[in-house]
Design a protein around this nucleic acid. Structure first.
Length: 271
DNA sequence: GATCCTTTGAAGCGA
DNA sequence: TCGCTTCAAAGGATC
C-alpha cells in the first residue's frame, strides 16, 4: 500500500519512533492516497504535506521534481540520504513530491549546522524582518550583548495542528465563496466547517498534523513550545481575558456574545 | 508598527 | 489530573 510504503521509507530515513498514541484524538488511520475526487483548490501556499491528498493532479513529472531539487541543499549528511532515497521513490509513488517541498524539509540557514543560505520558513527573526546591524557594538555591555544575542535567536515556529492545516488549505476557498477577507470572520466559518467534517475527513488532517510534529521533532530535537512563550507581546493580560469573555468588539465591529454566528455572511452550505 | 480578533489543537505549567 | 494559558495562520481593524 502506498501509505505503508511512504511510512516505511520515511521511518527508515528519519529513524521514526513508532506512532506513540499520537494525540488525544482517535486516529482512524485513513488511507493517504490521492483524493482525485476532491475539488481543486487554488491555494497558493498549501501545507506541502497536505498536497498528498489534496492535489487533484497526478504525480508531477520527474523533470518537475528535479527542478524542485535544484534549490535543495544536499550537503547535510543526515538528510542527503533522505533526499536521494525519496527521489528514488518518486517514480513509483504518486504524490510524494510534497516531501521535497515540505517547509520542514526546506532546510536552510536556520537549521543548526546547515550551511545553506535558504532560510527555513518556520524559522524567522524575532521581529519577522531583517535585523539591522548594531550601530555601535562597543557601546554595549556584556549583558546587553547577551540579551541582544538571545533576542536575535531565530524563532522556530510551532508545527501546525490539524485545524491549522485545514484552515490553510480552505481559507482561499472560503474567501472566494464569501467575498470576506477578515481572517476573524473567515476563521469562524472555517471552525464551523471543521465541525461539519466527517471523522474520516478530520482524521486526515490529524494524521498530517502528526507527521508535521514528527518532522518538527526530527529537525529541531531540542525545541520546545515553551521557547516561543512570551514572544508575542500582549497589550495587557486583563484586556486579553476581557476579549475572551465576549466583552470586546468582534471581527464584525459589534459587541455580541463570544463567537456569535455571522449568519449574514455565511453561505447556506457553511452551517 | 504592534496588537487584536477569531478559530481549534498541542503543549506548557501551576495547583 | 485538571484547568488555564500561549501560540501556531491570516489579514483587516484598531491602538
Amino acid at each position: 500500500m502506498y501509505k505503508d510504503t511512504v511510512y516505511s521509507a520515511f521511518n527508515l530515513l528519519m529513524h521514526y519512533p513508532p506512532p506513540s498514541g499520537a494525540g488525544q484524538h482517535p486516529q482512524p488511520q485513513p488511507p493517504l492516497h490521492n483524493k482525485a475526487s476532491q475539488p481543486a483548490h487554488s491555494v497558493p501556499q498549501l501545507s506541502p504535506l497536505y498536497e498528498h491528498f489534496s492535489s487533484p493532479h497526478p504525480t508531477p513529472a520527474p523533470a518537475d521534481i528535479s527542478q524542485k531539487q535544484v534549490h535543495r541543499p544536499l550537503q547535510t549528511p543526515d538528510l542527503s540520504g533522505f533526499y536521494s532515497l525519496t527521489s528514488g521513490s518518486m517514480g513509483q509513488l504518486p504524490h510524494t513530491v510534497s516531501w521535497f517541498t515540505h517547509p520542514s524539509l526546506m532546510l536552510g540557514s536556520g537549521v543548526p549546522g546547515h550551511p545553506a543560505a535558504i532560510p527555513h520558513p518556520a524559522i524567522v527573526p524575532p521581529s519577522g524582518k531583517q535585523e539591522l546591524q548594531p550601530y555601535d557594538r562597543s557601546l554595549k555591555t556584556q549583558a546587553e550583548s547577551k540579551a541582544e544575542k538571545e533576542a536575535k535567536k531565530p524563532t522556530i515556529k510551532k508545527p501546525l495542528n490539524a485545524f491549522m492545516l485545514y484552515m490553510k488549505e480552505m481559507r482561499a476557498k472560503v474567501i472566494a465563496e464569501c467575498t470576506l477577507k477578515e481572517s476573524a470572520a473567515i476563521n469562524q466559518i472555517l471552525g464551523r466547517r471543521w465541525h461539519a467534517l466527517s471523522r474520516e475527513e478530520q482524521a486526515k488532517y490529524y494524521e498530517l498534523a502528526r507527521k508535521e510534529r514528527q518532522l518538527h521533532m526530527q529537525l529541531y530535537p531540542g525545541w520546545s513550545a515553551r521557547d516561543n512563550y512570551g514572544k508575542k507581546k500582549r497589550r495587557s493580560r486583563e484586556k486579553h481575558q476581557e476579549s475572551n469573555t465576549g466583552g470586546k468588539r468582534n471581527a464584525f465591529g459589534t459587541y455580541p456574545e463570544k463567537a456569535a454566528a455571522p449568519a449574514q455572511f455565511l453561505p447556506m452550505t457553511v452551517l
